[in-house]
Design a protein around this nucleic acid. Structure first.
Length: 257
DNA sequence: ATGGCTACGATCCGTAGA
């Protein structure tokens, strides 16, 4: 089992957040950093900036919305975009292997509101994800599934569970689909370790939500059984969220091996 | 008080996020 620090960060535009990401890479030295909402075409991704820091880039971008990228110390192997048997114009999934560890970078659809067309798309998308991961488990022992899941797994992942109950990101149907991933054997490694109460990974830009710690934990690191057994630590780094012009998400990381 | 803020791509507002 290689020693790996794997992290995920929804950066809400890589062009707006280039300085923050560069600083965080240098400070935290992750082996793999999965980015979501890069919001640029693949050709416009600032790959040279990261290559200068010693990172390889695998990118699946699109104009204005969505877009995912994997930054890594090791060269990515067997890079695959998208879910299997699910046609999608939206760039939300990128997978690659590093020293025998398969990493899936996900930007799960937001869903807008319960009952909306986008919500139905989100649920279908999560069902296709389950099939993709079920197939992957048959091929790979060590799998990390990381990203912006846009689902708060439990009430303790929500600053005000009563206000959020039944709302998008917290609805039973969404949580059931997340549980269906865990039922495949994946582990939410953050909860394998002692964590502060009210640990969140996203805070609304509005109403001073970060200062008041009114957030949700919706960015996750899931690990297959064999990889979870090698997990030694996991956490959320709130520091970048406290900076000027932050992403609304914080980086979430886990150490393996 | 059902909003608040930020980014995009188009303009000076609409779409989207969560």
């Amino acid at each position: 089992m290689p020693r790996l620090k794997i992290a995920t960060w929804n950066v809400n535009s890589i062009r707006q957040r280039l300085g923050h990401v560069r600083d965080w890479l240098q400070a935290e030295q992750p082996d793999v950093l999965a980015l979501q909402e890069i919001k640029c075409q693949t050709a416009d991704f600032p790959a040279a900036e990261f290559e200068a820091l010693g990172y390889h880039c695998a990118v699946d971008g699109q104009r204005a919305y969505n877009g995912v990228a994997l930054l890594s110390r090791l060269s990515p192997v067997d890079v695959v975009s998208g879910l299997t048997d699910f046609t999608d114009e939206q760039k939300r999934v990128l997978a690659a292997s590093y020293d025998g560890v398969r990493v899936f970078d996900l930007y799960v659809p937001n869903g807008q509101s319960v009952g909306a067309d986008k919500y139905a798309y989100k649920l279908r998308w999560l069902e296709a994800l389950r099939e993709t991961l079920r197939t992957a488990l048959a091929r790979h022992d060590r799998i990390a599934v990381v990203g912006d899941f846009n689902i708060a797994p439990e009430d303790r992942d929500v600053h005000d569970p009563d206000a959020w109950r039944g709302q998008v990101l917290c609805s039973d149907a969404e949580r059931e689909r997340l549980q269906a991933l865990l039922a495949l054997g994946f582990v939410d490694v953050f909860r394998r370790f002692e964590q502060p109460e009210n640990s969140f990974s996203w805070w609304d830009y509005r109403a001073a939500a970060f200062r008041r710690n009114r957030g949700l934990r919706i960015d996750l690191v899931l690990a297959s059984p064999a990889l979870a057994a090698a997990c030694t630590a996991s956490g959320i780094d709130r520091a970048p969220r406290a900076r000027e012009q932050p992403s609304d998400h914080a980086p979430v990381w886990a150490r393996f091996g």
